[in-house]
């Protein structure tokens, strides 16, 4: 079962704890909280990170096959990377960044390799740090089926609460 980080959007308090936890762990934040405000002063926080797509555009776009989808997730081989940045362009969520190897900026002929920076779900950890730290419990590390089930349960409960007599 492919797991990913899901957001219960009605629970996000836009505190950015996930951002800070990720930054603390890896030096740069791979999840970003965007705050969407409505005209009346209400708002919602939306943490955006890699969706761990089943057919990832980033891998489809990669001309060198440095990025590829395997059964247990997206794999990256920095040896093959030519630092072209097509993956960054392809990602529909803006959740991927390319860091130049050696910290240089700009593509150079001598330094053709880059590192893809994206959420890798904290390999080696039981739960990704963003999920573990979320004070509001808005981030969930799960698969789409169980996430959907929880929402369905909640909706089911709501439509029954003022239980109407059978007609």
């Amino acid at each position: 079962m492919t797991k990913a980080v899901y957001v219960n959007l009605s629970h996000c308090i836009a505190c950015k704890a996930c951002e800070l936890a990720c930054e603390r762990e890896y030096g740069e934040a791979r999840v970003r909280v965007e705050v969407v405000l409505n005209g009346a002063g209400g708002g919602v926080g939306v943490p955006v990170s890699c969706r761990q797509c089943e057919t990832p555009f980033c891998a489809l776009a990669c001309p060198e096959n440095a990025l590829g989808r395997e059964v247990d997730g997206l794999k990256f081989d920095s040896g093959l990377c030519s630092d072209c940045g097509l993956c960054v362009l392809a990602c529909p969520f803006g959740a991927i960044e390319l860091k130049k190897a050696g910290g240089g900026s700009g593509t150079s002929f001598l330094n053709l390799s880059g590192t893809v920076v994206r959420c890798e779900l904290c390999p080696g950890k039981e739960t990704p740090v963003c999920v573990a730290t979320c004070p509001a419990g808005a981030l969930v590390y799960t698969d789409c089926e169980s996430f959907g089930k929880n929402i369905r349960r909640g909706k089911g409960k709501k439509c029954l609460k003022p239980s109407p007599a059978p007609l």
Binding site: K16, A17, E19, L20, A21, E25, A132, T133, P135, G137
Partner: peptide, 22 residues
């Protein structure tokens, strides 16, 4: 060098806010 979360803690269940992370 780092922070590890404490899911067994009765108050925060492991969660930390941005300040706690920093």
């Amino acid at each position: 060098v780092g922070i590890r979360y404490m899911p067994e803690h009765p108050v925060n269940e492991g969660a930390l806010c941005p300040k706690g992370n920093a």
